Computed example of a mutant assay.
Amino acid sequence: MPGVLEGLTVIEFAGIGPGPFACMMLADHGARVIRIERPGRPGRFGDNGNTDILNRNRLVVELDMKDPAAITRVRELVREADAIVEGYRPGVMERLGIGPEVLLADNPRLVYGRMTGWGQDGPMAPLAGHDINYIALSGALHTYGQAGGKPQFPVNAVGDFGGGGMLLAFGVMAAVFSAQRTGKGQVVDAAMTDGAAILSAMTWSFYGNGTWKDERGVNLLDGGTHFYDTYETADGKWISLGSIEPQFYAQLLDKTGLKDDPEFARQMDPSAWGPLKEKVTALILTKTRDEWCAIMDGTDICFAPVLSLAEAPSHPHNAARGTFLTEGGMVMPGPAPRFSGTPAPVPTLASKLLD
């Protein structure tokens, strides 16, 4: 069955990280994504050696962009496309002769998606950077980490993928929707710094209304409380608790045997969080992760074990939903979100060479 984006054609200029992630999302749901690669890059075709999940479901054209004939071919492809995605530094596409002015003249309905760290303008626009730098400048990185400790970056999920690729995928589809109504394409300037900032919108709300201290590990959602944090278990594994609402907190106290301790009635008193966390820490250490699962699974405590990459695919909930799948011998996340009428096709790792 075709995906929800069947009929959409996207030209992708090969890159790493957020651009491929955006195009993976589009391709997962049925878009025809043609990826332009440099010639002779090994291990991309067929199942053998093709292990980049971000590049799944692609058609590939090999073009040497230094060859004028390649530029002509790109312009031919773009004339029939709905969108392009590129992740070069500002000015590179213009120097190649395929910047927005040229390609929008060829195809006025074209959506020109641009993925960068700092954006297309501003004093830092031409500079190199990575996820860690973009989330640092946005203010997001400052909020991640334990009290009194250094900032802890969440691998490259916030800049590259949430604030980068997913933002670009949204921007491209929003602009395609506009082009379908107006007949006019446009440039989508997706910057990871902007994306990391907007992912922190709720934190900025709390900060603005005075309920968030501008320091790490002392707030409601950053590990400052005893009821919203991770805890080590007796076997060296971990569990997560998120018992914010009173009814969920009451279940936590009941299942842990803490309901008779009057100090735990001070749930929302920040001055009590430190001592109460020490008590919860000591208690959780008395049982294994599986023992706590037996106690808390199936309740509204807002509980889950902290699973490793090796463990997550086989958890009963993930298995029931098909959250992960295996393709070409590799375990990978399946397409998301889910569509009731046009479910995503089963992805394939093997790229196909487009004639």
Rank of each mutant, 00 (worst) to 15 (best):
347 P>D: 05
177 F>V: 14
198 I>E: 02
172 V>P: 09
284 I>T: 09
263 E>I: 13
179 A>C: 07
197 A>G: 07
226 H>Q: 13
244 I>N: 06
135 I>G: 01
94 E>M: 12
45 F>P: 03
322 G>L: 00
11 I>P: 02
16 I>K: 08
145 G>Q: 10
95 R>P: 01
117 G>D: 00
87 G>F: 06
187 V>W: 07
178 S>A: 15
187 V>T: 05
113 G>N: 02
348 T>C: 15
178 S>E: 15
70 A>C: 11
169 A>W: 08
220 L>P: 00
25 M>P: 05
328 G>M: 13
309 L>H: 08
164 G>W: 11
245 E>D: 04
225 T>A: 14
229 D>N: 15
254 D>I: 02
340 S>T: 12
182 T>Q: 08
297 D>A: 15
328 G>R: 11
200 S>K: 10
84 I>M: 07
287 K>N: 12
21 F>N: 00
7 G>F: 03
235 D>Q: 08
100 P>C: 13
135 I>L: 05
66 K>G: 09
198 I>G: 02
246 P>N: 02
226 H>N: 13
179 A>Q: 02
58 R>A: 12
148 G>D: 00
200 S>L: 15
248 F>P: 00
297 D>H: 13
328 G>Y: 12
212 W>L: 15
188 V>W: 06
196 A>L: 11
15 G>L: 10
30 G>H: 00
182 T>A: 10
80 E>H: 14
198 I>F: 13
46 G>R: 07
207 Y>P: 07
20 P>N: 07
309 L>W: 14
251 Q>T: 00
350 A>C: 12
125 A>P: 05
223 G>L: 07
24 M>I: 10
112 Y>S: 10
210 G>M: 09
136 A>H: 01
134 Y>N: 04
268 M>S: 13
108 P>Y: 05
210 G>T: 06
10 V>D: 02
75 R>G: 05
60 V>G: 06
251 Q>C: 02
223 G>V: 09
167 L>S: 11
191 A>I: 01
321 R>P: 03
18 P>H: 02
132 I>E: 00
159 G>E: 02
128 A>R: 08
91 G>L: 00
137 L>P: 00
260 D>W: 05
292 W>H: 04
91 G>R: 00
248 F>Q: 07
160 D>V: 04
136 A>N: 02
135 I>A: 04
274 G>Q: 15
56 R>Q: 01
128 A>W: 06
33 V>C: 07
216 R>N: 08
171 G>I: 09
66 K>M: 12
59 L>H: 13
138 S>F: 09
129 G>V: 04
348 T>Q: 15
331 V>N: 09
108 P>G: 04
322 G>S: 01
97 G>V: 10
264 F>L: 00
26 L>Q: 06
245 E>R: 00
164 G>F: 11
41 R>H: 13
21 F>I: 03
224 G>E: 05
92 V>W: 02
92 V>C: 03
308 S>W: 04
321 R>H: 12
317 H>A: 11
19 G>S: 07
35 R>H: 12
79 R>M: 08
310 A>V: 10
287 K>L: 15
181 R>S: 12
218 V>M: 08
89 R>L: 11
231 Y>I: 06
121 D>H: 12
